[in-house]
């Protein structure tokens, strides 16, 4: 019974994720694409819950579903002057690109199906946030500090770029 619920939940969440991702690249209205992108992020966070990554699921909703989606909608609103219809056209060569992407997908399926994976039978620890925190603040201390510096530099760069220098 538990197994069945897990299977159904996986397929439903995977279907939501893939369908909204397809919507993101096929919709011709840019705002619809952005909203479907938020839905896709929420589906991915559901997949994280199924993978027992509860902390990452919360982070995914907070950062992607909240911040990134809102930021992208803001970007659309600030860069579109007229109506939103037909703002997300693609080039006429969709068929050739589709063939290339299909070949890449076939290659990925072959690689995934033929690789012998070494599964582990041990369980995920119950308290994932504290274990991730211990990893980040002990073994990956330097990378953690570098990430914080990256965020600071990114913020300063974004402000400088968006503000713009004086012309003269």
């Amino acid at each position: 019974m538990d197994e069945l619920v897990y299977t159904i939940a996986f397929y439903v969440l995977a279907a939501i994720t893939i369908a909204s991702a397809i919507g993101v690249v096929t919709k011709t209205n840019l705002v619809h694409s952005a909203l479907l992108l938020a839905l896709c992020f929420i589906g991915i966070s559901g997949l994280y819950v199924l993978l027992q990554a509860d902390f990452l699921a919360a982070v995914q909703i907070l950062i992607y579903g909240g911040a990134v989606a809102v930021l992208i909608v803001l970007g659309i609103m600030l860069t579109q002057r007229s109506k939103m219809n037909d703002t997300n056209r693609d080039i006429g060569q969709g068929k050739g690109v589709g063939i290339i992407c299909g070949l890449f997908m076939a290659l990925m399926i072959i690689v995934i199906a033929t690789t012998p994976w070494h599964y582990s039978t041990s369980m995920v620890p119950q308290d994932t946030p504290s274990m991730i925190a211990q990893l980040l603040l002990s073994h990956y201390m330097v990378a953690f500090e570098a990430a914080s510096v990256l965020l600071l530099v990114g913020m300063m760069g974004a402000i400088t770029l968006a503000k713009g220098g004086s012309r003269e």
Binding site: I18, A21, I22, V24, V25, N88, D90, I91, Q93, G94, V97, G98, I100, C101, G102, F104, M105, M108
Partner: peptide, 10 residues
């Protein structure tokens, strides 16, 4: 692959 298609066509 869907993301790749979007990057190449949009």
């Amino acid at each position: 692959v869907i993301g790749l298609y979007g990057v190449l066509t949009k």
